[in-house]
């Protein structure tokens, strides 16, 4: 497999051309925007956490290269239905795969493995990471929300 074929695995191009979970989540509880100012890639992420802290719904919109779009699509597919803490742990696993070139965690990374080849292309790592950093940002709202609750309690 050539370097290029390793970077652009069939599964990635498939997600690029027909992204999963593209669009919006009606009544989303959390959202975040991510951007790569240098390339102009932009992703807007919306998700809903249910009462058990699970990601019940998630969708993304925006524009960018095949790697950033495929990574957004694969990320949403992977975290949908998972616990928010498990999703945050996956952000860490993914970043280690990108930055340290670690092998994908054995568990159930599934199609996300296809992004492992990106680690060889340092300038594209930020394209692949954008959706994940945005997810991390969106879930950081959880603490923001609890902080708001604290303020409300004090104002009582």
């Amino acid at each position: 497999m050539s370097d290029l074929e390793e970077l652009y695995r069939e599964i990635l191009l498939d997600h690029y051309r027909s992204p999963r979970n593209a669009g919006h989540v009606p009544g989303a509880t959390h959202s975040a925007d991510g951007a790569n100012p240098l390339c102009g890639d932009a992703v807007h992420l919306e998700l809903t956490l249910d009462g058990d802290g699970r990601i019940a719904g998630i969708a993304f919109s925006g524009h960018g290269c095949s790697i950033s779009q495929a990574s957004s699509s694969l990320m949403t597919e992977y975290v949908k239905g998972r616990d928010a803490d498990a999703a945050l742990a996956a952000v860490g696993d993914f970043q280690r795969m990108m930055i340290e070139g670690d092998p994908p965690p054995a568990a159930d990374f599934g199609d996300l493995e296809a992004l492992a080849g990106v680690a060889k292309f340092p300038v594209r790592v930020k394209c692949a990471s954008l959706a994940w950093k945005t997810l991390e940002q969106a879930l950081a709202d959880k603490r923001g929300a609890s902080a708001a609750v604290t303020t409300d309690e004090r104002s009582l």
């Binding site: 050539s2 370097d3 970077l7 960018g64 290269c65 095949s66 292309f121």
Partner: peptide
């Protein structure tokens, strides 16, 4: 059509051709 400029730049780099992709 259907190919982001970064991806064009990546394939061209594979062929030794250095161009700029971006804004």
């Amino acid at each position: 059509d259907g190919i982001h400029p970064h991806d064009i730049g990546q394939v061209l780099d594979g062929a030794g051709v250095a161009i700029r992709a971006g804004h």
